[in-house]
Design a protein around this nucleic acid. Structure first.
Lengths: 233, 233
DNA sequence: GCGCTGCATTGATCTCGATCAAGGAAATGA
DNA sequence: TCATTTCCTTGATCGAGATCAATGCAGCGC
């Protein structure tokens, strides 16, 4: 069907697969399992090893499950992102849809085996991974050394960059994740997140409307609050 | 000189470079800059872009500098490790020697350009990066969701795996990093780290001798304290 | 419309780890 | 050997954010 071939189309473009006629490309596309995930539902992998995901449409959260009811959201992903789900080790990992999603799922080891001969794909993957690593390291700094208000500023700026739409000097954000998700991503509680939003609202740095709409009125204020190294653009 | 050629030798082995006669291998080895770092001294990169490091001998810490005097140690590395130093973005990064070190420094972009045609090397790099990413994600869980005592347990178990030597049921650790380093790696203060060591010592879970020697007497106790997912080996 | 349910906000209190402040032990150098 | 410095440990206090507890509000089915 049309949607499905489109799925492979955009994926092929994203990882720089060879032209459509290439046998490698065909083999890889056959490997990919298209999955539809309804909002709120999650992909439990039951120790199937590391997976490579291409997110065709929608937003997901990558969650690490620690002991008890303590989850840490490792990363959010949006339409067009390619990312790894690690095999479960000390924690188990799952992907959860924030809204309805379409994704392509590849067993990472088989994918790599197939791609072994194609430097283009490998190079593309390395790019994806350096990106993921950079983001994860920045997250580690935030979780290890930042206050609640700094973490919120970092979060909002990060979201602005990835899913914000400019509107004059302001940026409009339609957040697909709940307050709980934000809290679990930032190592805080829902209440703290909510209080920080209130503070920013009172300071006119942001406006909110309903549960998901946030307007960032003062980006430079947010940057000043983010605790970034002075003199960084 | 002998040491230097050994340096390249072990590096070539680590990233699966082709046999010694290969011209690519020669070019890559010429690209690598051997650096000696005295204990405590650090490699400031002054925004020279991302770097690839091969640590021939010694231990290093990879530090992210956030605003003011707040540093977060992203990772420790030991003899034989290959790792990326990200280009500075919102934070600046530096590598600091915990003791005397020998390392090989490559500009990441040039290295990748050269390696572009060699699937073996690319594949090796992907392996390194998935490892780094897994560790960084586990660190994010620890920093975001774990108590001080859990973090210490995670740290000790991690070190045991990487640089511990088994001694019967116990593991002997000769930690190359200071309490301050441990604190900066775990998002805690020196005092808290010290207190947690004292608690573990009082519980006979560990013994210490001098500043750097730690003996882990009860690994299963540490594992139980680490807050790992139940039922994980 | 109305009531139900789940999410978000706000307030009161508590707690873990940070901060402040001394001591004590180990490495370093004369 | 002793002095100096640096690092580590221990104690007392403080505070940011967690926890506990309502209350408010948005979305949804009826």
């Amino acid at each position: 069907m049309a949607t499905q071939s489109n799925t492979f189309e955009t994926f092929a473009h994203s990882v720089k697969l060879a032209e459509p006629t290439s046998p490698l490309r065909q083999r890889i596309c056959e490997l990919g399992r298209p999955v539809h995930l309804a909002g709120g539902s999650s992909l439990e992998l039951e120790d199937a090893g590391a997976q490579l995901v291409y997110l065709t449409r929608g937003s997901t959260k990558l969650v690490a499950h620690a002991s008890e009811a303590r989850d840490q959201i490792i990363a959010f992903h949006f339409t067009g992102d390619t990312y790894w789900i690690p095999a479960s080790d000390n924690y188990s990992y799952s992907v959860c849809a924030l809204g309805d999603c379409e994704l392509l799922l590849f067993p990472a080891d088989t994918f790599l085996e197939m791609a072994e001969t194609d430097p283009h794909i490998l190079r593309g993957l390395i790019g994806q991974m350096t990106d993921a690593l950079r983001r994860c390291r920045e997250k580690a700094v935030a979780l290890g050394r930042k206050t609640a208000s700094e973490r919120i500023a970092v979060f909002l700026l990060g979201m602005a960059e990835r899913i914000g739409t400019a509107k004059g000097n302001a940026v409009v954000l339609d957040l697909p994740m709940s307050r709980r998700d934000i809290a679990e991503s930032l190592g805080l509680t829902i209440e703290t997140v909510s209080r920080q939003f209130t503070i920013l609202r009172d300071a006119k740095t942001i406006q909110t409307s309903g549960r998901s709409l946030v307007i960032l009125n003062d980006l430079s204020q947010l940057r000043a609050q983010a605790g970034y190294l002075a003199g960084t653009a």
